[in-house]
């Protein structure tokens, strides 16, 4: 078990190395020469060359790559070209809304999608199943921002139940915080719910054919207990896997959702950075999001042994 965990943690290294390489290439290939910019209009080519040497830009690719990795490991993400602030400060300022949005969405999605999936599996083939699965296909097909605008139009503009846009920090009261996040979370959760519900349905259907389910029914275990205790427990591995994989959807979706609902989070920061071509910021965000994704999936891998004791490493 310990050996397995160690192996799994070590396996992150090559993956993150590829990500880091890609992210570094992004900066390396980015248009514009920093030395020319710093030297200004009046500079002679010799001046530019001097500045380039001063910045270490004339050294080979791999030397610069190694140096950059060294900085990253020491949490030095560089400074934003646009604002001049350290990237780590920018990220720290923006992390709360994004984290709130993701956690709420995750909870909301898991709580709604798993019962939906189980229900669909239980009533497989019946109209209830068809309705749920139709919604699931719609969830896959309607882009995040379309869901966002429609929800905002109906619930905020027409019905006036919830705030249209904006974010209220958790420090200013949990009620307002939650109110502001309901629509964004529903928006962001749409695809995620569709994905989890579909997987749950397939996994539970598979389990329901097993002998022990028939045994449970024969000895008089109620329908609800059979579905949630016996079936769900045994169907947990694919469901947990897809919850982990789906985090990528949440990250990508957050970028869009935050734009629609004017939430000042990391997604908004990403969009701004792209529009301003602020490469150090883009770089750090890609690196950060990928790391989060990899770590979530590592956690999911380690969870397998908890949800399914039959799995032994």
């Amino acid at each position: 078990m310990v050996a397995y965990i160690a192996r799994r943690v070590l396996a992150i290294i090559p993956v993150m190395a590829v990500v880091a390489m890609f992210v570094f290439l992004l900066l390396y290939l980015s248009p514009g020469d920093p030395a020319v910019v710093i030297a200004g209009d009046q500079a002679t080519p010799e001046d530019v060359e001097k500045i380039r040497q001063g910045l270490g830009l004339d050294r080979p690719f791999f030397v610069r790559f190694a140096e950059w990795i060294w900085q990253i490991v020491h949490f030095d993400l560089g400074t934003s070209i646009f604002t001049g602030q350290p990237v780590s400060t920018l990220i720290a300022q923006r992390i709360e809304p994004t984290l709130s949005l993701m956690v709420i969405t995750l909870l909301f999605a898991v709580i709604t999608s798993i019962p939906l999936g189980i229900l669909a599996a239980w009533k497989a083939g019946a109209w209830l199943d068809r309705i749920i699965m139709t919604f699931a296909v719609f969830g896959f097909s309607v882009p995040v921002f379309v869901v966002g605008y429609v929800l905002a139009y109906v619930f905020a503009l027409e019905l006036d139940w919830l705030p249209v846009q904006g974010y209220s920090p958790i420090a200013q009261g949990i009620g307002h915080w939650l109110e502001g996040l309901l629509l964004p979370a529903a928006t962001l959760g749409c695809v995620y719910i569709a994905l989890i519900a579909r997987t749950t349905r397939t996994a539970v259907l598979e389990v329901l054919r097993q002998d022990y389910i028939r045994t449970a029914r024969a000895k008089g275990v109620g329908q609800i207990a059979t579905l949630f205790l016996h079936a769900l427990k045994n169907a947990a591995v694919p469901v947990v896997t897809v919850i982990g994989i789906g985090v990528a959807l949440l990250i990508g979706g957050a970028v869009v959702t935050e734009s629609v609902f004017a939430i000042p989070g990391l997604g908004r920061l990403t969009v701004d950075a792209i529009l301003r071509r602020d490469y150090p910021v883009i770089q750090s965000l890609v690196l950060l999001f990928s790391l989060v994704y990899v770590l979530v999936n590592l956690a999911v891998d380690l969870l397998y042994t908890v949800v399914d004791p039959r799995i032994r490493y």
Partner: peptide, 12 residues
């Protein structure tokens, strides 16, 4: 290499 690319969310 593919794992590495895949661990960057595709929209990002």
């Amino acid at each position: 290499v593919m794992d590495g690319i895949m661990s960057i969310p595709s929209i990002l």
